[in-house]
Design a binder for these strands. Structure first.
Lengths: 162, 162
DNA sequence: AGAATTTACTTGACTGGGCAACTATAACAC
DNA sequence: GTGTTATAGTTGCCCAGTCAAGTAAATTCT
């Protein structure tokens, strides 16, 4: 009967639990679906997607990192993987020799196109089909405000990523 | 100008992007807040919370795993960490000698109570304050349906966790 | 009761991604 | 131009968590 109160309302607690569950479950099932059907990790799939949508099918590493919500070093490793599979190539930038552009190759684009249907179906089954139009709209807006940049700075130190 | 269509509507794509961003960002910021203020990883905090809410402040490993949406082996390692810190103890179950109950210790409960305010504030700042009452309700419901068990079985093999 | 199966973990090997330290180029100060 | 600082990536080390294989207790079959 020990009843501990952590200072949230019942509704707030319910939200936080639903959120942490979704946060654990969703990426796992989407990744598992894609790995099973296409032997392609979800992260790599997203990276290819962002490249395919980019101007000239190319992005700087740091843009890859931003889009994947990942550190630059994480993005480096992701690009390494994709490069080993020849889905992308690094091209030393003409304008800035410090880093390279990551360019989507034909092989990479083919691979992505082959994977689309699988991911689309997976997203439908796991997520989209479970929401009505109103939920979809509200959820998108809510998740966007939640995912937005911290905007805190109440505490002094703000050492960002490496 | 290359315009690739992956077979989702604009709204659906927007949702999936908002979702993957939130999925990357939320756990990272909540964990970072708690680590900074309390030197306690978010996973460990949740484990302690679930134990504190459980009947007799004790859970079987597999119940810890379920609540954390983690594999049993992941839960084993989490409990190992908490045990090393003496926040929990393993007690061989009287009724079933195959595994142990995980019991919250006084030290663990104190630690949890000390961490509550920090996590509550963090959750407020990062999540709750950014939602109005309606969004909170819709979001909770939507995330719960998304996080719910797959209910698929369209494909033959369903090898669950180890 | 003894054998076979199932359950409840535990453990070893591995992977993805984070952080901090490092390298190389660029930009700025003078 | 040379020295200083900032920027873009890369790399070594580490940790959390997964998977597959192993162990031990419990349950079921006969």
């Amino acid at each position: 009967m020990a009843h501990h109160n952590n200072g949230m309302t019942r509704d707030e607690k319910a939200l936080m639990q639903a959120l942490s569950r979704a946060i654990s479950v969703v990426p796992r099932v989407l990744d598992a679906d894609l790995q099973r059907d296409q032997q392609l990790p979800l992260t790599d799939y997203f990276a290819l997607t962002y490249l395919s949508e980019a101007e000239g099918q190319r992005l700087r590493i740091n843009e890859v990192a931003t889009r994947l919500s990942m550190t630059i070093s994480g993005a480096t490793r992701t690009v390494n993987r994709l490069e080993a599979l020849e889905f992308v190539a690094r091209e030393r930038s003409a304008s800035d020799g410090r880093g390279a552009d990551v360019v989507l190759t034909d092989v990479g684009l083919k691979r992505l196109k082959a994977a689309w249907p699988s991911h689309r179906d997976s997203a439908r089954r796991r997520v989209l089909d479970r929401l009505d139009a109103n939920e979809l709209a509200v959820l998108t807006k809510a998740l966007n405000s939640i995912g937005a940049e911290p905007d805190d700075f109440d505490s002094a130190d703000c050492p960002p990523q490496s």
